[in-house]
Design a protein around this nucleic acid. Structure first.
Length: 226
DNA sequence: CCAGACGTTGTT
DNA sequence: GTCTGG
DNA sequence: CCAGACGTTGTT
DNA sequence: GTCTGG
């Protein structure tokens, strides 16, 4: 679940997320099918300002010897964030938003083999933000890598028809609280990680989740740095 | 104590 | 780095 | 998450 | 079947 999503335009992002121009990335990548290990558009709070930039999807813990562990850490269960060694510290101080306008989920076809992909988005078709955690990893040689994971929770009534888990979409009024690095009351933070209201979402089957060319130009990656 | 994992999903 | 299992 | 590969030797 | 890359 939560293995692919979309960000198809970059219009009015700074207004929607309240980013001042000095903290915007030089370029924003858009895609119909963003996969783990690719750069994803994110917002963090550096203690003073909100900053927008790209993070690599698949969290690499600070202590990792090999970046490959990031291939496994693209999702984090909301229920256990405070306990897991890889997520504990990021949950306390390194929370982020990951910007999207849709995501995919695959429903197993009854009886037989195969899966049917569904595209899910908000009824108003607007941007939303996944709850995420970010981390900075410095390899033995070379530049630091800024990476992130997307938090999952139980499915709401809409998603439950497709799958039993779904990514956490933060209620817009809670975005500031989620990002605030000074907020360390994990009980309150945990409360923000609930299934988004089903009535505000819609889902429909699609023929394929893969529909756009990928862009692998590493020059486009502009990691957030603090 | 050291050694080894550190994650989720879904499937069995 | 920190936790778990042996 | 899905899609796609899954291998080596030796030659250019 | 299982791993890797995107």
């Amino acid at each position: 679940m939560c293995g692919r999503f979309t960000l198809t335009t970059a219009d009015e992002l700074e207004e929607r997320f309240g980013i001042i121009s000095a903290y915007l990335p030089e370029q924003i990548e858009t895609s119909f099918n963003i996969a783990p290990s690719q750069p994803v558009l994110s917002v963090i709070h550096d203690g003073k300002n909100k900053r927008m930039g790209h993070l690599r999807w698949g969290l690499i813990p600070r202590w990792a010897k090999d970046e490959k562990i990031g291939h496994k850490l693209m999702n984090a269960r909301a229920e256990t964030l405070a306990e897991k060694p890889s997520f504990k510290k990021p949950f306390q101080t390194q929370r982020c938003l990951i910007i999207a306008d849709g995501f995919y989920e695959w429903k197993k076809r009854d009886g037989g083999k195969g899966k049917q992909p569904y595209r899910i988005h908000l009824k108003d078709e607007k941007y939303f933000a996944f709850a995420g955690l970010w981390e900075k990893w410095t390899p033995p040689t070379g530049e630091a890598v800024f990476s992130c994971t997307i938090i999952t929770t139980e499915a709401n009534e809409l998603m439950n028809e497709i799958h039993h888990r779904m990514p956490v979409i933060i209620n817009p009024k809670d975005e500031v609280a989620w990002l605030d690095p000074m907020q360390s009351n994990t009980n309150e933070l945990q409360h923000l990680l609930r299934p988004y209201p089903a009535g505000d979402m819609q889902a429909y089957p699609v023929s394929s989740a893969v529909s756009s060319p990928k862009n692998n130009d590493p020059e486009l990656i502009k990691p957030i740095s603090i």
